[in-house]
Computed example of a mutant assay.
Amino acid sequence: MGILNLTPDSFSDGGKFNSEKSALEHAEKLLKDGAEIIDIGPQSTRPNAEFLSSKEEIERIGSMISRIKKEFPQALISLDTFYAETVKFGFNEGIDIINDISGGQYDHKMFETAAETKLPYILMHVNPSYETMHDKVKFEDISLQVNRYFSKKTTELLEKGVKDIILDPGFGFGKTVEDQMKMIGETGYLGFGKFPLLIGISRKSFIYKPLGKSPLDINEETQKLHLTVLEQGARILRVHDVAETAEILRQFLRKK
Protein backbone atom coordinates (compact mmCIF):
# COMPACT_ATOMS: atom_id res chain seq x y z
CA MET A 1 0.00 0.00 0.00
CA GLY A 2 1.60 3.24 -1.20
CA ILE A 3 0.78 6.48 0.60
CA LEU A 4 -0.61 9.46 -1.33
CA ASN A 5 -1.09 12.41 1.03
CA LEU A 6 -3.15 15.24 -0.47
CA THR A 7 -2.20 17.35 2.53
CA PRO A 8 -0.11 20.49 3.01
CA ASP A 9 0.92 19.41 6.54
CA SER A 10 1.74 15.69 6.67
CA PHE A 11 4.87 15.04 8.74
CA SER A 12 7.28 13.86 6.03
CA ASP A 13 5.76 14.82 2.66
CA GLY A 14 3.32 17.65 3.43
CA GLY A 15 2.58 19.85 0.42
CA LYS A 16 4.35 17.63 -2.11
CA PHE A 17 1.30 16.05 -3.71
CA ASN A 18 -1.60 18.40 -2.99
CA SER A 19 -2.07 19.53 -6.61
CA GLU A 20 -3.88 17.25 -9.06
CA LYS A 21 -0.88 17.04 -11.41
CA SER A 22 1.65 16.17 -8.69
CA ALA A 23 -0.77 13.69 -7.06
CA LEU A 24 -1.36 11.85 -10.36
CA GLU A 25 2.37 11.75 -11.05
CA HIS A 26 3.03 10.35 -7.58
CA ALA A 27 0.25 7.75 -7.98
CA GLU A 28 1.89 6.62 -11.22
CA LYS A 29 5.29 6.36 -9.50
CA LEU A 30 3.84 4.36 -6.59
CA LEU A 31 2.28 1.87 -9.01
CA LYS A 32 5.42 1.60 -11.16
CA ASP A 33 7.48 0.97 -8.01
CA GLY A 34 5.22 -1.95 -7.08
CA ALA A 35 2.26 -0.65 -5.06
CA GLU A 36 -1.02 -2.52 -5.50
CA ILE A 37 -3.08 -0.22 -3.26
CA ILE A 38 -2.93 3.59 -3.18
CA ASP A 39 -3.97 5.03 0.16
CA ILE A 40 -5.35 8.53 -0.35
CA GLY A 41 -5.19 10.80 2.71
CA PRO A 42 -6.98 14.16 2.60
CA GLN A 43 -6.18 15.00 6.26
CA SER A 44 -2.96 14.72 8.24
CA THR A 45 -3.24 12.86 11.56
CA ARG A 46 0.23 13.75 12.82
CA PRO A 47 0.39 15.49 16.23
CA ASN A 48 -0.89 19.11 16.10
CA ALA A 49 -2.14 18.78 12.52
CA GLU A 50 -4.89 21.03 11.18
CA PHE A 51 -8.33 19.53 11.90
CA LEU A 52 -10.61 19.32 8.85
CA SER A 53 -14.35 18.72 8.59
CA SER A 54 -15.71 16.07 6.23
CA LYS A 55 -16.78 18.84 3.84
CA GLU A 56 -13.20 20.18 3.75
CA GLU A 57 -11.82 16.67 3.16
CA ILE A 58 -14.22 16.16 0.24
CA GLU A 59 -13.24 19.53 -1.26
CA ARG A 60 -9.56 18.61 -0.94
CA ILE A 61 -10.08 15.24 -2.64
CA GLY A 62 -12.05 16.80 -5.51
CA SER A 63 -11.94 14.52 -8.56
CA MET A 64 -8.68 12.83 -7.53
CA ILE A 65 -10.16 9.38 -6.85
CA SER A 66 -12.05 9.16 -10.16
CA ARG A 67 -9.03 10.57 -12.05
CA ILE A 68 -6.70 7.91 -10.59
CA LYS A 69 -9.26 5.16 -11.29
CA LYS A 70 -9.56 6.34 -14.89
CA GLU A 71 -5.79 6.67 -15.46
CA PHE A 72 -4.83 3.49 -13.55
CA PRO A 73 -7.82 1.10 -13.55
CA GLN A 74 -5.64 -1.71 -12.13
CA ALA A 75 -5.03 0.22 -8.90
CA LEU A 76 -6.97 -0.45 -5.73
CA ILE A 77 -7.72 2.77 -3.85
CA SER A 78 -8.16 3.02 -0.10
CA LEU A 79 -9.46 6.24 1.45
CA ASP A 80 -7.91 7.31 4.74
CA THR A 81 -10.73 9.07 6.65
CA PHE A 82 -12.64 8.84 9.91
CA TYR A 83 -15.80 10.46 8.48
CA ALA A 84 -18.79 8.47 7.20
CA GLU A 85 -19.71 11.31 4.79
CA THR A 86 -16.24 11.25 3.23
CA VAL A 87 -16.57 7.47 2.83
CA LYS A 88 -19.91 7.92 1.02
CA PHE A 89 -18.30 10.46 -1.30
CA GLY A 90 -15.32 8.15 -1.90
CA PHE A 91 -17.60 5.18 -2.56
CA ASN A 92 -19.40 7.13 -5.29
CA GLU A 93 -16.03 8.12 -6.77
CA GLY A 94 -14.86 4.48 -6.89
CA ILE A 95 -12.77 3.64 -3.80
CA ASP A 96 -12.09 -0.04 -3.03
CA ILE A 97 -11.18 0.06 0.69
CA ILE A 98 -12.06 2.19 3.75
CA ASN A 99 -9.04 3.02 5.93
CA ASP A 100 -10.43 4.43 9.20
CA ILE A 101 -7.78 5.34 11.78
CA SER A 102 -10.49 5.87 14.42
CA GLY A 103 -12.02 2.41 14.61
CA GLY A 104 -15.44 4.04 14.24
CA GLN A 105 -14.88 6.08 17.42
CA TYR A 106 -14.75 9.60 15.90
CA ASP A 107 -17.96 9.25 13.83
CA HIS A 108 -20.71 6.98 15.17
CA LYS A 109 -22.10 6.45 11.64
CA MET A 110 -18.89 4.92 10.29
CA PHE A 111 -19.59 1.21 10.90
CA GLU A 112 -23.11 1.51 9.50
CA THR A 113 -21.77 3.32 6.41
CA ALA A 114 -19.01 0.74 5.93
CA ALA A 115 -21.68 -1.99 6.00
CA GLU A 116 -23.80 -0.12 3.43
CA THR A 117 -20.88 0.18 0.99
CA LYS A 118 -19.89 -3.52 1.45
CA LEU A 119 -16.25 -2.39 1.06
CA PRO A 120 -13.33 -3.91 2.99
CA TYR A 121 -12.76 -1.94 6.20
CA ILE A 122 -9.39 -1.33 7.89
CA LEU A 123 -9.85 -1.25 11.67
CA MET A 124 -7.06 0.53 13.53
CA HIS A 125 -6.30 0.51 17.25
CA VAL A 126 -6.27 4.08 18.59
CA ASN A 127 -7.22 6.13 21.65
CA PRO A 128 -10.99 6.80 21.92
CA SER A 129 -11.14 10.48 20.85
CA TYR A 130 -9.53 12.77 18.27
CA GLU A 131 -8.21 14.98 21.09
CA THR A 132 -6.49 12.04 22.84
CA MET A 133 -5.32 10.32 19.64
CA HIS A 134 -1.63 10.91 20.37
CA ASP A 135 -1.68 10.82 24.19
CA LYS A 136 0.93 8.27 25.20
CA VAL A 137 -0.56 5.35 27.15
CA LYS A 138 1.65 2.82 28.94
CA PHE A 139 -0.19 -0.47 28.63
CA GLU A 140 0.37 -3.34 31.03
CA ASP A 141 0.40 -5.69 28.02
CA ILE A 142 0.13 -3.90 24.67
CA SER A 143 -0.63 -6.99 22.57
CA LEU A 144 -3.35 -8.14 24.98
CA GLN A 145 -4.89 -4.65 25.01
CA VAL A 146 -4.85 -4.36 21.22
CA ASN A 147 -6.41 -7.82 20.88
CA ARG A 148 -9.20 -6.96 23.37
CA TYR A 149 -9.97 -3.87 21.28
CA PHE A 150 -9.91 -5.90 18.04
CA SER A 151 -12.19 -8.53 19.56
CA LYS A 152 -14.79 -5.96 20.65
CA LYS A 153 -14.67 -3.91 17.44
CA THR A 154 -14.69 -6.84 15.00
CA THR A 155 -17.74 -8.25 16.81
CA GLU A 156 -19.49 -4.88 16.35
CA LEU A 157 -18.49 -4.69 12.67
CA LEU A 158 -19.64 -8.24 11.92
CA GLU A 159 -22.96 -7.60 13.68
CA LYS A 160 -23.43 -4.46 11.53
CA GLY A 161 -22.78 -6.51 8.39
CA VAL A 162 -19.15 -5.61 7.57
CA LYS A 163 -17.72 -8.88 6.26
CA ASP A 164 -14.24 -7.96 5.04
CA ILE A 165 -12.09 -6.63 7.91
CA ILE A 166 -8.36 -5.80 7.93
CA LEU A 167 -6.62 -5.09 11.25
CA ASP A 168 -4.08 -2.32 11.88
CA PRO A 169 -2.42 -2.23 15.35
CA GLY A 170 -1.94 1.55 15.08
CA PHE A 171 1.81 2.16 15.15
CA GLY A 172 2.52 5.83 15.83
CA PHE A 173 -0.73 6.50 17.69
CA GLY A 174 -0.53 6.98 21.48
CA LYS A 175 1.97 4.21 22.19
CA THR A 176 5.41 4.31 23.78
CA VAL A 177 8.54 3.35 21.82
CA GLU A 178 8.90 0.26 24.04
CA ASP A 179 5.32 -0.89 23.40
CA GLN A 180 5.68 -0.40 19.67
CA MET A 181 8.88 -2.45 19.54
CA LYS A 182 7.08 -5.10 21.61
CA MET A 183 4.26 -5.13 19.03
CA ILE A 184 6.82 -5.63 16.24
CA GLY A 185 8.13 -8.70 18.07
CA GLU A 186 4.61 -9.99 18.81
CA THR A 187 3.00 -9.27 15.42
CA GLY A 188 2.18 -12.95 15.04
CA TYR A 189 -0.11 -12.80 18.10
CA LEU A 190 -2.11 -9.76 16.97
CA GLY A 191 -5.59 -10.32 15.63
CA PHE A 192 -5.85 -14.03 16.48
CA GLY A 193 -4.99 -15.00 12.88
CA LYS A 194 -8.63 -14.41 11.92
CA PHE A 195 -8.19 -11.30 9.79
CA PRO A 196 -5.43 -9.95 7.51
CA LEU A 197 -2.99 -7.66 9.30
CA LEU A 198 -1.84 -4.29 7.94
CA ILE A 199 1.37 -2.80 9.35
CA GLY A 200 2.08 0.92 8.95
CA ILE A 201 5.49 1.82 10.39
CA SER A 202 6.83 3.91 7.50
CA ARG A 203 8.71 7.02 8.73
CA LYS A 204 7.27 6.65 12.24
CA SER A 205 8.96 8.43 15.15
CA PHE A 206 9.37 5.31 17.31
CA ILE A 207 12.01 4.23 14.77
CA TYR A 208 13.79 7.50 13.95
CA LYS A 209 13.74 9.38 17.28
CA PRO A 210 15.71 6.81 19.35
CA LEU A 211 18.28 6.72 16.53
CA GLY A 212 18.58 10.52 16.40
CA LYS A 213 17.65 10.46 12.71
CA SER A 214 15.03 12.16 10.53
CA PRO A 215 11.94 10.37 9.08
CA LEU A 216 13.66 10.27 5.67
CA ASP A 217 16.85 8.57 6.93
CA ILE A 218 15.54 5.29 8.35
CA ASN A 219 14.77 3.29 5.23
CA GLU A 220 17.26 0.51 6.02
CA GLU A 221 16.00 0.11 9.61
CA THR A 222 12.37 0.18 8.43
CA GLN A 223 12.92 -2.55 5.84
CA LYS A 224 14.48 -4.83 8.49
CA LEU A 225 11.35 -4.33 10.61
CA HIS A 226 9.15 -4.96 7.56
CA LEU A 227 10.88 -8.33 7.12
CA THR A 228 10.27 -9.13 10.80
CA VAL A 229 6.52 -8.48 10.54
CA LEU A 230 6.20 -10.29 7.19
CA GLU A 231 7.79 -13.37 8.77
CA GLN A 232 5.05 -13.22 11.42
CA GLY A 233 2.17 -13.08 8.96
CA ALA A 234 1.61 -9.39 8.10
CA ARG A 235 -0.27 -9.18 4.81
CA ILE A 236 -0.23 -5.47 3.87
CA LEU A 237 2.55 -2.92 4.39
CA ARG A 238 1.52 0.75 4.28
CA VAL A 239 4.59 2.66 3.08
CA HIS A 240 6.06 5.84 1.59
CA ASP A 241 9.08 4.07 0.03
CA VAL A 242 7.43 1.54 -2.27
CA ALA A 243 10.38 0.42 -4.43
CA GLU A 244 12.54 -0.49 -1.42
CA THR A 245 9.64 -2.29 0.27
CA ALA A 246 8.81 -4.21 -2.93
CA GLU A 247 12.41 -5.48 -2.94
CA ILE A 248 12.05 -6.68 0.67
CA LEU A 249 8.81 -8.43 -0.30
CA ARG A 250 10.56 -10.18 -3.18
CA GLN A 251 13.34 -11.33 -0.80
CA PHE A 252 10.72 -12.60 1.65
CA LEU A 253 8.78 -14.50 -1.02
CA ARG A 254 11.97 -16.09 -2.40
CA LYS A 255 12.73 -17.50 1.07
CA LYS A 256 9.28 -19.07 1.42
Rank of each mutant, 00 (worst) to 15 (best):
L76Q: 13
D135Y: 14
T45H: 06
Y208V: 03
T113H: 00
K55N: 05
S53F: 06
I201S: 04
H134F: 12
D9R: 09
T154C: 06
G191F: 04
I201F: 05
I37V: 12
L79H: 12
G104S: 02
K163T: 13
L157Y: 15
L31R: 13
A35V: 09
G233F: 03
G200N: 12
L123Q: 05
Y121E: 04
F252E: 15
E59D: 13
L249Y: 07
K209V: 14
K153W: 10
F192Q: 03
Q105N: 03
D141P: 05
F82E: 06
I40N: 10
F192S: 12
K88A: 07
Y189G: 00
K21M: 06
G161F: 12
K29D: 12
F82T: 02
H240G: 00
D107H: 11
K160A: 11
I122R: 08
I165G: 06
A49K: 03
G193Q: 08
L52M: 07
K163N: 08
E93Q: 11
L216E: 15
I166L: 07
R67C: 14
S214Q: 14
M183T: 13
R235S: 14
G90C: 04
L237N: 10
P8C: 11
L6H: 14
V146K: 02
S53A: 09
H134N: 07
L123K: 08
D217L: 10
T132M: 05
Y189Q: 08
G62C: 09
Y149L: 01
G161W: 14
L198K: 05
T228N: 07
I184R: 07
T81L: 11
I165H: 11
F195L: 13
G200D: 12
E140I: 06
E56I: 09
I199M: 04
L4Q: 11
F91N: 03
G34Q: 07
S129M: 04
S66V: 05
A243N: 13
L30A: 14
H134G: 07
G193N: 06
D217P: 11
S129A: 05
F206I: 06
P215T: 00
L230R: 04
L79N: 12
N92L: 10
G103V: 08
G94R: 10
N99A: 01
G90S: 01
R67E: 15
E50F: 08
F17W: 15
G188E: 10
G174K: 12
H240S: 02
E20Q: 15
I40G: 01
S12A: 01
S151I: 12
A23F: 07
K175H: 10
Q74H: 09
Q232D: 04
S129C: 00
K256P: 01
S143K: 09
M124E: 04
L249A: 03
H240P: 03
F89K: 12
T45D: 06
I77D: 00
K256H: 13
M124P: 02
G200E: 10
I199D: 13
T176R: 14
I248E: 13
T176D: 05
R238C: 09
K136T: 02
A114M: 08
V146P: 01
P128N: 05
R46N: 15
K152S: 14
I122M: 13
D107L: 04
V239E: 07
G104V: 11
T155L: 12
M124V: 00
H26A: 09
P73H: 01
M183N: 01
E85P: 06
Y83Q: 14
E71Q: 15
S63T: 15
G2N: 04
A243T: 09
Q223G: 00
V126R: 04
K136C: 02
L157T: 02
Q145C: 05
E20I: 15
T155I: 13
